[in-house]
C-alpha cells in the first residue's frame, strides 16, 4: 500500500531515455506496472506526443522533482506538478551533488516537512541512513525510497547489509528501492529481502530490447516477492546432504 493506493504491481517504472514513444508505451505495457514516473521541463520537441501517451496509458503518475538542488526548487516543482498532473503524489528528489546525484538529506527532510504539511503524499528518494528515514517519517512521509546505487549507474544493491538493516528497522513502512538497478536479478534480490517495490528507469530504457527487458524485470519482481513470502532458507557455513543417508547401499 503506497498511501491510499494498493497497486497490482510492485514495479514503478521511469519514462525517460527510451528510443521512441512507441517503445516507451510498449515497455510500460510489458512491465505490467501501475505507476509511472514523470517530470516537468520546458516544452521541447515531442512534448505533445508525450502528453498524448500519458492520456492513453491510463497509469498512476508519480511526478518527480529531478534536478532540484534546494528546498525551494523542490517545493515549487511539486506545486507545479500537482497542478499539471492533477495528483498529490510527489517523488521528492533534492540532490546534493550533480556528479553523485546523492540526496541532500537535510534539504530532503525540510522539503518533505513542507510538502507533507500541505497534504502531498511524499515519496522521498533517500539513502539507507536509518536516522534520515526516521526524520522523514516524523515529518509525515508514509513511504521511503532508499537508493540501491547512484541513479543510472546500474550497480545494483551496493550496500546490502545497510538495506537489510533498514528493512528490519522499518518493518511496517513501505520501502521502495529507487535507482541504481541494472539487472532483473538485482530487482529480484531486493524483493526477496522484503522490499515493497522497485523503481527503475535506465536499465530498461537503455536495454537493447526495452520491451523484453521490461517484461524480464516485471517477472523478476513478482518472483522475488513470491520467494520472500515463501520464506528463504537459512544460509549454512557447511554442506548438508539433501539426499537421505538412511538406506544408502554398501558398495565397497
Amino acid at each position: 500500500m503506497f498511501y491510499d493506493f494498493n497497486p497490482g504491481s510492485r514495479f514503478l517504472l521511469g519514462t525517460a531515455c527510451y528510443p521512441s514513444p512507441e517503445l516507451l508505451s510498449k515497455a510500460i505495457a510489458a512491465s505490467q506496472t501501475d505507476i509511472i514516473t514523470v517530470s516537468l521541463r520546458r516544452e521541447g520537441a515531442g512534448g505533445g506526443v508525450f502528453r498524448q501517451l500519458l492520456e492513453e496509458v491510463n497509469k498512476k503518475f508519480l511526478p518527480n522533482t529531478a534536478g532540484c538542488f534546494t528546498v525551494k526548487e523542490a517545493v515549487t516543482t511539486a506545486h507545479m506538478a500537482q497542478e499539471v498532473f492533477n495528483t498529490n503524489w510527489i517523488k521528492l528528489e533534492v540532490i546534493g551533488h550533480a556528479d553523485t546525484l546523492q540526496p541532500d538529506p537535510f534539504a530532503l527532510v525540510e522539503a518533505a516537512r513542507i510538502l507533507c504539511r500541505e497534504g502531498f503524499s511524499v515519496f522521498p528518494y533517500t539513502t539507507d541512513d536509518l536516522i534520515v528515514g526516521e526524520k522523514l517519517l516524523e515529518v509525515g512521509c508514509q513511504v521511503l525510497m532508499p537508493w540501491g546505487a547512484p541513479i543510472g549507474s546500474g550497480q545494483g544493491l551496493r550496500n546490502k547489509e545497510a538495506l537489510k538493516s533498514m528493512r528490519a528497522y522499518f518493518p511496517k513502512t513501505p520501502l521502495i528501492i529507487d535507482a541504481g538497478l541494472g539487472a532483473p536479478s538485482q530487482a529480484m534480490e531486493a524483493m526477496e529481502m522484503g522490499f515493497d517495490g522497485v523503481l527503475l528507469n535506465t536499465a530498461i530504457a537503455k536495454a537493447k530490447d526495452p520491451i523484453k527487458m521490461a517484461q524480464a524485470f516485471g517477472e523478476a519482481i513478482v518472483a522475488g516477492r513470491k520467494a520472500y513470502h515463501a520464506g528463504l532458507m537459512e544460509k549454512r557455513d557447511m554442506a548438508e546432504a539433501s539426499t537421505p543417508a538412511y538406506g544408502l547401499a554398501e558398495l565397497i
Partner: peptide, 10 residues
C-alpha cells in the same frame, strides 16, 4: 517566467 510541461522522467 518558467513555463513547464509534462515530460519523461525517472
Amino acid at each position: 517566467i518558467e513555463v513547464l510541461s509534462p515530460m519523461q522522467g525517472g
